[in-house]
Write a protein that binds this DNA or RNA. Structure first.
Ligand code: FES
Ligand code: FES
Lengths: 135, 135
DNA sequence: TTAATATCCGACTATTGTAATCCGATTTTA
DNA sequence: TAAAATCGGATTACAATAGTCGGATATTAA
């Protein structure tokens, strides 16, 4: 299905929440309760975003998260890459030589599909958290 | 993952093949062998495309498939809808009232996400089989 | 210094969706 | 009437997603 995973959905919700409440540090618990996201799963997701630098964490009591970079420079594509490692329509496209499936290198859809993908990726790459946060 | 399913991949490959060989009737077996797609699975996929009118079938020996409408009027979105029933980023977006999840109706990402989705769908909806077939 | 509250991390489980297969019926042509 | 094709339901196998559990570590405040 051409559907965004729950992890991506939660990630966007969380980043939006952190962006909107940028005056303070926000805990996973607070986001979980306010947005109705399973706490444990959200924690994992936030840790992934932290590892990729999208957010910065603060340990201990009174701890939590703040944005790791400007919301204007944080795109939906960044979030997908941070949480799923890649953003590719077909498996073939991941490898550099494109020789994963037995159809290549004489594949008849590779070029047009890559073109389609790059158009979609451009949409993802030009939609920022700042844009999503300011409704 | 933001990945197209094998069914969609096979569907596009098959429609492209049928479009390219529009001078004759093409059997599932031929597509299966030429494109390296599991025969049974492909058959199911072609039957779905047939039900939605994207292709027209011919029973019996010397039977097979031809396009059901002009390749210029057949978009990637049509194919996704035909094979997966919908093309939606979040489950919430499917229902008309948008009241599936407990976040709505006060959801903070619904509007911006729908906007993002419509941009992506426009890409899918302006990419045709004709475009994919003529590399 | 210690209790409370938070992030961190690996492993595990449950559920769902995808991909593929099996078997038989029906239709058409040679 | 046999061969070759589409049809269609049911079933299975596998993979990805979604969620949970238990415990370690860090920080702050009492
Ligand atoms: S290279 Fe794998 S489907 Fe085209
Ligand atoms: S309405 Fe469900 S996530 Fe927004």
């Amino acid at each position: 299905m051409i559907k965004l995973s729950k992890k991506i959905e939660y990630g966007i919700l969380a980043l939006q929440y952190i962006a909107v409440h940028s005056d303070k540090i926000v805990s996973a618990k607070e986001i979980s309760e306010q947005m109705g996201i399973p706490y444990e799963f959200l924690s994992k997701t936030l840790q992934q975003l932290m590892k990729k630098g999208l957010i910065v964490s603060q340990h201990g009591i009174k701890g939590g998260y703040i944005l790791g970079k400007n919301a204007n420079d944080m795109t939906v594509k960044d979030i997908i890459i941070a949480l799923e490692g890649k953003a590719s329509f077909l498996d073939c496209f991941v490898s550099s030589n494109g020789l994963i499936c037995d159809r290549s290198p004489n594949c008849t859809i590779k070029d047009p599909m890559e073109k389609l993908q790059s158009k979609v990726m451009q949409v993802f790459n030009t939609t920022t958290i700042a844009e999503i946060a300011t409704i």
